[in-house]
C-alpha cells in the first residue's frame, strides 16, 4: 500500500505538522510566492528560498464551479460540483485553492480553514489527490 498519488509532488513538502504547500520567500524583501519561483515579483531580485506555507488560514474570497470545465481539467468524468477560493495565510500570501465545501450558504469570507489533501480524479490505479482547504473546527 503506497501513499495516494498527488497531482504534482513539487507543490508539497513535509513538516512536523504534516504536509504543507511549498512556496518561495525572498531573502531581501520577504515577499512570498506559490508555487516556488526564482525571481522576486516585488523587489525584482533573485534571492528566493524555499519555505513551507502555513497549513491554516482564513477564507479571503470564494466562488463555485457550476459545470464540468473543459480540458485541461482532468477531474472525474461526471460533473461533481466544486468550489474554489483564495485563503489568506498569515504573513505569507493568499493562495488559490479548491474548497471542500461546495454549498454557497456554508461558505463565508473570513471563515477559518486548514489544508487537506483530497481526491479529484481516479483511474485503475486508484485516486489522484490535490490540495484543498476545509473548514477548521479546532
Amino acid at each position: 500500500m503506497t501513499a495516494p498519488r498527488f497531482v504534482d509532488p513539487s507543490l508539497l513538502t513535509d513538516t512536523a505538522d504534516g504536509p504543507a504547500l511549498l512556496g518561495s520567500r525572498c531573502s531581501d524583501c520577504g515577499a512570498h510566492t506559490f508555487p516556488r519561483q526564482g525571481g522576486c515579483p516585488r523587489c525584482t531580485g533573485a534571492a528566493m528560498e524555499d519555505v513551507p506555507l502555513s497549513r491554516t488560514g482564513t477564507l479571503w474570497s470564494w466562488t463555485t464551479q457550476g459545470f464540468r470545465p473543459k480540458p485541461p481539467y482532468t477531474g472525474t468524468e461526471a460533473y461533481e460540483p466544486y468550489a474554489v477560493g483564495y485563503v489568506e495565510l498569515p504573513d505569507q500570501l493568499l493562495v488559490e485553492t479548491r474548497l471542500a465545501e461546495t454549498d454557497p450558504d456554508r461558505l463565508e469570507i473570513g471563515m477559518p480553514v486548514e489544508l487537506a489533501l483530497v481526491p479529484f480524479r481516479g483511474d485503475d490505479q486508484g485516486s489522484v489527490h490535490t490540495y484543498a482547504f476545509v473548514r477548521r473546527t479546532s
Partner: peptide, 11 residues
C-alpha cells in the same frame, strides 16, 4: 504548471 489546469482552477 499543468496541475493548475488539471485540478480545475484555470477557469
Amino acid at each position: 504548471g499543468s496541475w493548475y489546469g488539471e485540478t480545475g482552477m484555470m477557469v
